[in-house]
Deep mutational scan, measured.
Amino acid sequence: MQRVNMIMAESPGLITICLLGYLLSAECTVFLDHENANKILNRPKRYNSGKLEEFVQGNLERECMEEKCSFEEAREVFENTERTTEFWKQYVDGDQCESNPCLNGGSCKDDINSYECWCPFGFEGKNCELDVTCNIKNGRCEQFCKNSADNKVVCSCTEGYRLAENQKSCEPAVPFPCGRVSVSQTSKLTRAETVFPDVDYVNSTEAETILDNITQSTQSFNDFTRVVGGEDAKPGQFPWQVVLNGKVDAFCGGSIVNEKWIVTAAHCVETGVKITVVAGEHNIEETEHTEQKRNVIRIIPHHNYNAAINKYNHDIALLELDEPLVLNSYVTPICIADKEYTNIFLKFGSGYVSGWGRVFHKGRSALVLQYLRVPLVDRATCLRSTKFTIYNNMFCAGFHEGGRDSCQGDSGGPHVTEVEGTSFLTGIISWGEECAMKGKYGIYTKVSRYVNWIKEKTKLT
């Protein structure tokens, strides 16, 4: 034993070699072989497995989906700052455009905790909710729209109204504003409101030439003092309507412009014939205590009207009353817009006519005020429907199939267009061939041609 100890002390290297040989010859039971080890760690190889990531292109799944990435790591994937920024906006807080917040056709661009709407022409605001041009839906104005110097929408209202708090709607500024039905039992019968379409306001006024200088022999019209197929109006439903009495009662109609003036057809009036105007009328054979009678003290036909040349060209006249009318729910003026808007309103496509005229061709006159909704007829169809001249200051309205029309005794009465609950004068009943005849239409004086003249002559002093 002493000898062994001496050998170990003198030859430590020998001992180490012996131990190493023993270990190498022993069977290893701690580690699995290569094949079995792979069965336990069965993990798919990654895209760049075996390579240094710093030297390969980034992978979106590896960089940002398996674990949260930084902007720089995302930049490695896209290799483009702009594309990385677009991805980053949604990656950080989701897609803010998912709810489609942009209105009126706006395009949404996502941002971090926010979004941006790219608005089409005519709109602005956070969600493109603000109209900035009158060309689109009248700028959301209830009545009139004008573009300011910086191309912003400025709404306005006709006389007797003021802008509401929203700067879009119009509200009454006087007790009985024009064009409004205020009798409670008839307010439910107000005709369907007309909503502004998209309009090209630059070209809204037709490029028409008034044929002022045409000389033409007097034409022989049949029954051209021209509501057939209409309905009984309720008291106060058309408070701007008046009836004219002269040699015979209810020979023509008219509309209240203001307390002192009536507008009617020029062919209705004769110099030297006494005319009485009755406002607030409903049943011409009954006294309903809503009527107001006034005498006409002055007749002003349009300066281009000449019955000797043509009885229905420039067929418009103004009547001055001896005493002002007292405005109330049964006696209310009709609204008159400017030339541009009167023309736009007419193009809405349908209007209402009213009167006490004959209820059928050569038949009896109506006792109760009649009204009828009539569609506008395109000019080409209008011209083809008659052998008589249709001037540019006239328009056609009615039904091709016949059966409904204005008729004798309705002449001078109103053709009105309702705009968001307020009625505007767009025409004056003038003439036609018979009444409600198939293929024939009622012919009306186009008020847009005469609004400046009306307003100039009827100013209240």
Score class of each variant (00 low, 15 high):
Glu401His: 11
Val273Thr: 13
Phe196Lys: 15
Lys68Arg: 13
Arg358Glu: 10
His303Arg: 08
Glu129Tyr: 03
Val92Trp: 09
Thr81Glu: 13
Met65Asn: 07
Asn38Ala: 12
Ser70Met: 05
Thr84Glu: 02
Gln2His: 09
Pro120Ser: 12
Glu67Phe: 00
Cys119Val: 01
Cys18Glu: 02
Cys119Gln: 03
Asp93Leu: 09
Val326Tyr: 10
Ala250Thr: 10
Val273Gly: 11
Phe196Glu: 14
Gly351Gln: 03
Val257Glu: 01
Asn310Lys: 05
Ser49Leu: 05
Asn328Pro: 00
Lys152Trp: 07
Glu320His: 03
Glu285Asn: 09
Lys440Asp: 15
Asp315Lys: 00
Cys396Arg: 02
Thr84Cys: 03
Val4Tyr: 06
Asp410Met: 15
Ser448Asn: 05
Thr194Ser: 13
Leu23Ile: 13
Glu340Cys: 03
Trp261Arg: 00
Val419Ala: 05
Cys141Phe: 01
Phe395Pro: 01
Cys178Gly: 01
Glu76Leu: 01
Cys97Ile: 03
Asn258Ala: 04
Asn166Tyr: 02
Leu460Pro: 10
Lys146Gly: 07
Leu41Ala: 05
Leu369Arg: 15
Lys455Met: 07
Thr225Trp: 11
Pro375His: 14
Phe123Lys: 11
Glu281Phe: 10
Tyr47Leu: 04
Asp249Tyr: 05
Lys247Ser: 13
Gly442Pro: 04
Met6Phe: 12
Leu23His: 05
Asp405Ser: 15
Cys170Ser: 00
Val447Gln: 00
Val30Thr: 15
Ile344Ala: 15
Tyr22Ala: 13
Gly122Gln: 09
Glu193Pro: 15
Glu171Trp: 07
Ala397Asn: 01
Glu142Ile: 05
Arg140Val: 07
Ala397Gln: 01
Tyr450Cys: 01
Val199Pro: 13
Pro324Gly: 05
Cys268Leu: 01
Glu208Cys: 08
Glu86Tyr: 08
Glu72Ala: 09
Tyr201Cys: 08
Ala265Trp: 01
Gly439Cys: 05
Asn138Glu: 05
Glu67Arg: 00
Val451Asn: 03
Asp93Val: 11
Ala9Leu: 13
Ile297Gly: 04
Cys119Asp: 02
Pro120Asp: 13
Phe31Gln: 13
Phe55Asn: 14
Cys134Tyr: 03
Phe144Leu: 05
Glu323Asn: 10
Phe31Trp: 10
Pro44Gly: 09
Leu321Asn: 00
Phe123Arg: 08
Gly179Trp: 00
Phe224Val: 14
Arg298Thr: 10
Asp93Pro: 10
Ser354Asn: 09
Phe31Ile: 14
Gly179His: 01
Glu434Gly: 10
Glu10His: 11
Thr16Glu: 06
Phe176Lys: 04
Gly125Gln: 03
Ala317Trp: 00
Asn213Phe: 06
Thr225Met: 08
Gly357Trp: 07
Trp88Ile: 04
Thr186Phe: 12
Glu86Thr: 10
Thr422Lys: 05
Val296Asn: 00
Ser49Glu: 15
Val195Glu: 12
Gly125Phe: 02
Phe388Thr: 12
Phe238Val: 07
Trp240Val: 00
Glu116Lys: 14
His400Trp: 09
Cys145Glu: 03
Asn5Ile: 14
Gly94His: 12
Asn127Ser: 11
Phe395Ser: 02
Trp356Phe: 11
Leu376Ser: 04
Ser217Ala: 09
Ser448Gly: 08
Glu27Arg: 10
Thr81Tyr: 11
Thr290Leu: 06
Lys89Met: 09
Val278Ala: 06
Ile7Val: 14
Ile299Leu: 05
Asn104Val: 03
Pro120Ile: 09
Val419Phe: 13
Leu19Met: 09
Tyr450Trp: 00
Gly13Val: 13
Leu163Tyr: 01
Glu288Phe: 06
Gly412Tyr: 08
Ala380Ile: 10
Arg162Glu: 11
Tyr305Gln: 02
Val377Asp: 01
Thr386Met: 13
His400Pro: 15
Lys347Ala: 11
Thr426Lys: 00
Leu211Tyr: 08
Gln96Asp: 14
Asn138Met: 07
Pro235Met: 08
Glu340Phe: 10
Gly439Phe: 04
